[in-house]
């Protein structure tokens, strides 16, 4: 029993150490980072965070990222819900092939799509808009959401649909009033994964934006290549990108295990 607890604790320490180091650096001045090596900030400062909160080129990155992530989650859920219902309730022509084809898009390397996306969105005049990134991220989020939701919906017995139709519910009314609330935990899990994969993605977000919709991850990589030395601000920016993730995990903590238990990630 002792060794088991030790393994778990060691693993968690291994996970937290690099994050602690980033936090540590974000609270130091650049002089301290480069001159003295210390395990905690000797001269605690929030100047790095102030830089980010006062410089529009930094905080706009966070705003832009949030906008396209939320847009993506909304679009994905709106179209994935009816589709997942169709897959879980009906046999129709080509359903299995369609399902596999959808999943292949989750397997497509974003690098393959970077250039064609750039050309496509430039051609239709969507380059450097939030909606372009949101649509591009649908490529891998829609298949995932359909897959997760289909699993949850299959767990709801079909008799419920039948009873509702006999009681005179129309399909839209049944779907929004009765069915959707029943699978709310599934929707939570799907939204969690959409948020997560859209938030962490860099390549497509960077390729499809330049100024107006530039994401925080793109801002960070460009700063590194340009100045390359402002470690404190870079660390602070990194810490701030972790916070939304922590919030989201906290809200869906009870659903995570359930979502994983269905084996649908």
């Amino acid at each position: 029993m002792k060794t088991k607890a030790l393994v778990t604790i060691l693993y968690i320490v291994f996970l937290l150490l690099p994050i602690y180091w980033l936090l540590n650096m974000s609270l130091k001045t650049n002089e301290e980072i480069l001159s003295t090596f210390s395990l905690w900030p000797q001269d605690l400062t929030f100047a790095n965070y102030m830089v980010i909160f006062t410089d529009p080129s930094w905080y706009n990155g966070y705003i832009n990222s949030t906008i396209y992530v939320v847009l993506n989650t909304i679009i994905t859920l709106l179209v994935a819900l009816p589709a997942a219902y169709a897959f879980s309730r009906y046999n129709f022509m080509g359903d299995k092939h369609l399902f596999f084809w959808l999943l292949t898009n989750r397997m497509a390397p974003p690098a393959v799509f970077a250039l064609p996306f750039f050309q496509l969105y430039s051609a239709v005049g969507l380059f450097d808009t939030h909606i372009a990134v949101a649509l591009a991220h649908c490529l891998f989020n829609i298949p995932l959401a359909v897959w997760i939701l289909e699993g949850f919906m299959s767990g709801v017995p079909r008799e419920i649909d039948e009873t509702a139709y006999i009681d005179g519910y129309s399909f839209p009314r049944f779907f929004t009033r009765i069915f959707t609330p029943m699978i709310s935990s599934g929707i939570g899990v799907a939204a969690f994964f959409c948020f997560m994969f859209s938030w962490v993605e860099l390549l497509l977000a960077r390729t499809l934006t330049s100024v107006d919709a530039k994401s925080i991850s793109a801002t960070m990589t460009r700063t590194v290549s340009a100045s390359g030395l402002d470690w404190g601000v870079l660390a602070a920016a990194g810490i701030l990108t972790i916070i939304p993730g922590i919030l989201v995990i906290y809200f869906v903590r009870n659903y995570i295990a359930k979502g994983f238990a269905l084996g649908r990630v």
């Binding site: 994050i19 993605e201 860099l202 925080i216 991850s217 960070m220 939304p244 906290y250």
Partner: peptide
């Protein structure tokens, strides 16, 4: 929660 943490950090971070 602690274990899920690295999964939610943007890849460039």
């Amino acid at each position: 929660i602690l274990m899920a943490l690295p999964l939610l950090i943007p890849w460039n971070v």
